[in-house]
Amino acid sequence: MVLENQDNRNLWEKIGDFFSANSIWMKWYCTGCGAIELPPTMTSRFDMERLGMGPMATPRQADVLLITGYLSSKTLRRVIYSYEQMQDPKYIVAFGSCTINGGIYYDSYATINQLDKYIPVDLYIAGCMPRPEGIMNAFADLITMIKKGQANGWRHYQENYEWYKQNQLDSLKEVIIHDEFHE
């Protein structure tokens, strides 16, 4: 992703980013093993609600999409669908080494190696898997990035839509999800 350091937001966007930074609703995309690290992060030991974060039920309501681990080409289609259903501004946090370079599945025929070729990732959390401390630290970083206006992945996706779409098509052949029960 591209970090834009110059701050050319107007006052309204700055106020909006203040609200966005302090109230983050998440949609967990829990196919990988990272999902198991989220309940302790949410419950009484680490308590992410202190930072104003909470889980939401659908992508439409959410601000942050959490990709918790490896993605097979079949689940990647669902992730792209979910991401495109979310409302701007939206952010993606990717968990663990699987989303960075494939992790232990780097030579698998069925999984993708590098997530940010397909959707714009704002923040990676390294580790296999990251502990709740690491996740909390990353969320604190995400809040700082949103406040400073540096989490611009969603804008980057709009500006470079053709590039992302081409990568998606190269890997998946088609992004349409077929209705497996009715076709």
């Binding site: 909006g16 609200f19 966005s20 302090n22 109230s23 609703w25 609600e49 202190r50 104003g52 701007d88």
Partner: peptide, 18 residues
């Protein structure tokens, strides 16, 4: 627990989004 004014932040955040 969250800040006591968290509900205000949530509402204004939601109104800010597209």
């Amino acid at each position: 627990g969250p800040r006591w004014y968290q509900q205000f932040l949530d509402i204004f955040k939601a109104l800010r989004k597209g």
